[in-house]
């Protein structure tokens, strides 16, 4: 049985026994894979398991807000699983309402994404391929003298067209009021925060959440090496707090529990969910 047949069989079963209200994955329409919620078994003919990635878990967060009582299935690559873990811990998704079908990525995709572990904790579809991420990009910039390093980043940030694509595509960017467009800080009709403030604010806010999926860099029309920046921030968080976002379901995000643990990040998403 090939991967596609196996996936169809698993999803059919979930849909037939009413374990889920729908299954979120990619569907081939007019020759293009696009995100879709499969609710009927006969739709599964169009199921796509190829190498195109969309932020499925971000879409799932939207579905869960709209239909909080329903359980959904989701096709889950390793990066999707890491984002699910962060979304559970940040109370954006209820793990009891998510049924994941794990898919291991091909060696080619793992290479293209420079992935550190291209398979989820449970593999239902695909073959496990071992691979380790290459930190060369971070090391290369670290090796530069400070002034040159500064010039390097400023020459990257200046290319930014403020499309907000890095934020919009990010599966673990979920705040309902984003600092980068908060009306108290950014005036309506005015300019967005300037570089490098825009980029550094985002890097800081994602510090204990970035799961290194690389979707931001793929969505950047200006080819800014965002992943190198966020990888450096991930390294800093790891060395300071011993925390790697997306790795463990137990460890709490350090920036939410600083101090004696009584401080929590506020925000309407939390209040909405009570």
């Amino acid at each position: 049985m090939d991967g596609l047949e196996k996936a169809r069989a698993i999803i059919s079963e979930l849909l037939t026994k009413d374990a889920i209200s729908g299954f979120l994955a990619l569907k081939m329409v007019n020759g293009h894979p696009m995100p879709s919620l499969f609710t009927r078994v006969d739709e599964l003919d169009g199921l796509y398991l190829g190498e195109v990635r969309y932020p499925l878990t971000k879409i799932l967060t939207g579905l869960a807000r709209k239909y909080p009582d329903n359980t959904f299935g989701i096709l889950t690559r390793a990066c999707d699983e890491r984002s699910l873990i962060e979304l559970y811990k940040n109370q954006q998704l209820d793990p009891e309402k998510v049924t994941f079908v794990g898919m291991a990525c091909s060696g080619e995709l793992a290479e293209k994404c420079d992935c550190s572990r291209p398979y989820p904790s449970r593999i239902d579809i695909g073959e496990k391929v071992e691979r380790h991420g290459d930190p060369a990009g971070v090391r290369e910039i670290e090796a530069l003298p400070e002034e040159e390093r500064y010039r390097h980043w400023m020459s990257q940030f200046i290319k930014c067209i403020k499309c907000y694509g890095c934020r919009n595509i990010c599966p673990v960017c979920f705040c309902t009021t984003c600092t980068l467009e908060d009306h108290n800080l950014v005036h309506l009709g005015g300019m967005p925060p300037q570089m490098p403030i825009f980029h550094l604010v985002r890097a800081m806010h994602m510090a204990d959440r970035c799961i290194d999926c690389g979707l931001c860099e793929e969505a950047c029309p200006a080819d800014i090496p965002l992943r190198t920046l966020y990888r450096k921030v991930r390294e800093t968080v790891q060395s300071l707090f011993g925390y790697v976002p997306g790795e463990s379901t137990e460890d709490l995000p350090p920036l939410e529990t600083l101090g004696d643990g009584t401080f929590e990040i506020g925000g309407s998403s939390r209040e909405q969910r009570g």
Binding site: H32, K162, C163, E218, A219, P221
Partner: peptide, 12 residues
Amino acid sequence: KTHPINEGTLCI
């Protein structure tokens, strides 16, 4: 992502 013009990117 698979569009030949924008290849997964957009402006604001």
